[in-house]
Design a protein around this nucleic acid. Sequence first.
DNA 1: AACCATCCCAACCGCATACAT
DNA 2: TATGTATGCGGTTGGGATGGT
Length: 284
Amino acid sequence: MVRAPCCEKMGLKRGPWTVEEDQILKSHVQKYGHSNWRALPKQAGLQRCGKSCRLRWVNYLRPDIKRGNFSKEEEETIIKLHEMLGNRWSVIASRLPGRTDNEIKNVWHTHLLKRVKQNGESKPEKHIRIPDCHLNDTELSQPEGSTNPTLSGCKSMEYAQMSPQPSSSDRSSVTDTSETNSPDLIKVENIDSSEIYPVIDEDFWSEPEMVENSGMPSSSFLDDLQFPFPSSDSTTDPAGCYGYGPKADDNMDFWYNLFIKSGGIEELPVQYLQRYNYVADERI
DNA sequence: AACCATCCCAACCGCATACAT
DNA sequence: TATGTATGCGGTTGGGATGGT
């Protein structure tokens, strides 16, 4: 059964916004903020649902929205980021101050996708999906001169210069930060890759200790694995991070990609992920 | 001028996640 | 821990604008 749209319940208005509605919403948000979108339309006297108000504000009324066509540079940035991140429009938008995820998504589908196809710019076989908890302003990059990370195996590692990830509700703060440093655009190529990829200690490269005839790493080897998730109490276990990270799937994708692309101990990720009911075959 | 096809974008929907209790 | 609610995100769509015939 399909859930009825929220606006239908109360006979609330849908469709295009009028100038009057825009004015009411804009002045209300500027005056009182938007701590509670659900209550906002009632307080402001709008016959709209909170979701609709939020969308209108975020995509159109926000004062920092940049209008007009995308510059060549902006388009290049979108293409580049899309190649790295896939359809993660909100993350891409956070790199383009004044542009909304909706706008970027539209531009991608109407212009850029065609251009990319025309130019024969192929999509990577698989995106390296960095967990959201690791995506901050300085973390959108890749190892120098390569599309994919080249880590081989993983025993212990730590992140360099790990900084807290703003919550999704803080998206505007990401934009604001970049604006204070002036550039309209944050250049992908200016980001230091050492800030995102782990610093690996020597033990990292050692072969896993295997249980005889099982194809499985020994339990002591698994127990010794160090995972660099900062928010978890259980830093030795990706599943320990599962409940903490903003997007659990992203965490697993990250690890999966990391391991699968490794040349050293390919058995480990499959076995390890299966331990957490993550069907590896679907991800290959 | 009239019709049709395509483009473009604002707005919507449903799901995932975060947060509160 | 379980459940309910609020918010954010990404995919999709409706309809106005534009261009071609």
